[in-house]
């Protein structure tokens, strides 16, 4: 297969970027989009040109490292699919493939297609954890979790934190990511101790990072390689309202959050 690849090139965080077009040949239909870029990079290296920088790690759709906007869609046109799992057979042979980095003020471009998703790490650090006593591991069945609750929490925990929700959102909102994390912990017994604090802090950090607000377009759910539902966002809103109310009550009781 042959492609005309139109790709975003930017030499550094503060450099001015622009699109460059490259012709690549000899692409197998079984190759992933990233492997197509590998072929392109080999070609560029041989020509003495700087290869295209992009993120990838596991290349099996579970790590959340890769993430490109392909033909205007985060992770490409396939539903529930990461960029690394996007096969070239889904593209028209001889056609143009447009590749851009995730675009958001909170995801600044480092180089070419690589963006800094540190904002997600800071949101996680603000409350995306559970505090447990260190020491020997507790007995596996000491804390009981009903099967249906475990399943629900797992649906939210499937989030790999790739940032496609932000990239796809017309407002560059991080609501789907943050809501998946808040929902997952709010369902499990281990997450109860910090439940209110977590909702307040993670949402607070999300707002502070400068992500946009949510307009309920649900484009994030379509872009999510793990199919995380926007019902997580509804849950996050409930959790936040509940936490804001309880925080108020505790402050009155002299406790505080």
């Amino acid at each position: 297969m042959k492609f005309n690849v139109k790709v975003w090139r930017q030499s550094g965080p503060n450099a001015k970027g622009g699109f460059k077009q490259y012709a690549v040949d000899g692409i197998l239909p079984e190759m992933s989009l990233l492997e197509m870029l590998d072929v392109l990079n080999e070609q560029l290296t041989k020509q003495g040109e700087e290869p295209v920088a992009f993120d990838s790690d596991c290349r099996e759709g579970i790590c959340g490292t890769c993430g490109l906007v392909v033909d205007g869609m985060a992770h490409g046109s396939r539903l529930k699919c990461t960029t690394c799992e996007l096969r070239m057979r889904h593209f028209v042979d001889g056609g143009t493939v447009t590749i851009e980095p995730f675009r958001a003020k909170s995801f600044p471009v480092i180089k070419d297609l690589v963006v800094d998703r540190g904002a997600f790490d800071r949101i996680m650090a603000a409350g995306g954890y559970v505090s447990v006593n260190a020491g020997s591991a507790p007995d596996a069945n000491a804390v009981l979790v009903p099967k249906d609750i475990a399943e629900k929490a797992m649906d939210s925990a499937a989030c790999i934190g790739c940032g496609a929700c932000v990239a796809a959102c017309p407002n560059a909102s991080a609501s789907l990511f943050v809501s998946a994390k808040i929902t997952q912990f709010s369902l499990l017994p281990q997450g109860q101790a910090e439940r209110e604090r977590r909702a307040l802090r993670m949402v607070g950090q999300m707002d502070q990072e400068g992500f946009g607000n949510c307009s309920n377009h649900a484009e994030c759910e379509a872009a999510c390689p793990k199919g995380i539902s926007i019902s997580n966002i509804a849950t996050m809103r409930r959790e936040y309202m509940r936490a804001a109310r309880l925080h108020e009550e505790r402050a009155e009781a002299g406790g505080g959050g």
């Binding site: 675009r103 003020k105 649900a218 484009e219």
Partner: peptide, 23 residues
């Protein structure tokens, strides 16, 4: 206004993925 602030540089190509999207 948030939207403009949160994504100052837009995409060259923009498309909806369909499926569960309500855009």
């Amino acid at each position: 206004l948030d939207e403009k602030r949160a994504r100052p540089d837009g995409y060259a190509l923009k498309a909806s993925k369909g499926g569960p999207s309500k855009q």
